[in-house]
């Protein structure tokens, strides 16, 4: 953790949070996310991953400790049920809210940026379709486009693949990687699937129920011992070669013996 200040996108020091006094979600949480990298946040259900994201976004204030974030962050929440049937284009335009005056509407320029974001994610044909009629994967891409048009340098995604089938999971993971590598965005995402972290993350933060966190490079943190200990079920990492590169596959041991 000896990064110079301008390399850090988001850092938390001794963070602690509760919703009900006494029932700490986490305490003494330290992390420092470097700029331009992909960071995966892992942990069991209820350990405070989403809460941590909301603190990073400034939507919640930590009860103790301090959070530092110098750049604008955009959020991709878990898929939510929209009540009104806005078109995908209208949904994406809402990402421009910070740049549009209180009594104003999106300009032609805003509209063009929205179209460009849709085009970039390969869903421009959905522009005038109602968001409410899209599939889960399409919705996720629309919300991702909405985050992109905000011109935020930090992209925060809450379990972006939780509602997606295998093919759409792979598609989204590839998008995340290219947003970091090609566009230089800092990407922070939570996931329940360590194999996704292995596939795309540079760094990993694992939150544990006792409040301690393990963080570091993906290969150092996501070891068989750590994964087995955290998830309480035996996990094997299998090394294999693909196109001349060594890759890791994660296998969960479901058998009893």
């Amino acid at each position: 953790m000896t990064k110079s200040a301008d390399e850090i996108a988001v850092a938390g020091r001794d963070l602690a949070f509760y919703y009900q006094p006494g029932a700490w979600i986490f305490q003494g949480l330290n992390f420092s996310f470097a700029r331009g990298r992909v960071h995966a946040v892992l942990g069991l259900n209820g350990c405070g991953k989403t809460t941590l994201l909301r603190i990073m976004l400034g939507l919640l204030k930590p009860k103790l400790g301090s959070l530092e974030r110098r750049e604008l962050a955009a959020f991709v929440p878990q898929i939510f049920q929209a009540i009104f049937s806005f078109s995908s284009l209208d949904m994406v335009l809402m990402g421009r809210a910070r740049r549009i005056g209180l009594f104003s509407r999106p300009s032609k320029l805003d509209e063009r940026l929205a179209f460009e974001a849709l085009e970039k994610l390969g869903i421009i044909h959905l522009a005038h379709r109602p968001y409410t009629e899209l599939s889960g994967g399409q919705r996720q891409l629309v919300i991702l486009a909405r985050a992109l048009v905000s011109e935020a340098k930090i992209l925060i995604l809450d379990e972006p693949t939780s509602a997606l089938d295998l093919g759409n999971q792979a598609l989204l993971i590839k998008r995340i990687r290219s947003l970091s590598r090609d566009d230089g965005l800092t990407v922070i995402f939570t996931t329940h699937m360590p194999q996704q972290a292995l596939a795309v993350a540079d760094d990993v933060l694992i939150m544990t129920p006792n409040g301690l966190a393990i963080s570091g490079g993906v290969r150092e943190v996501l070891t068989e011992e750590n994964l087995t200990k955290i998830y309480g079920t035996e996990v094997k990492l299998v090394e294999f070669e693909r196109r001349g590169h060594k890759s890791l596959a994660l296998v969960t041991m479901f058998s009893e013996d």
Partner: peptide, 18 residues
Amino acid sequence: AWRLNILSLGDSDAAALG
């Protein structure tokens, strides 16, 4: 009116959009 569109997405989404 345009801000109302965003507000109609729900509190947390609208807050995250600024």
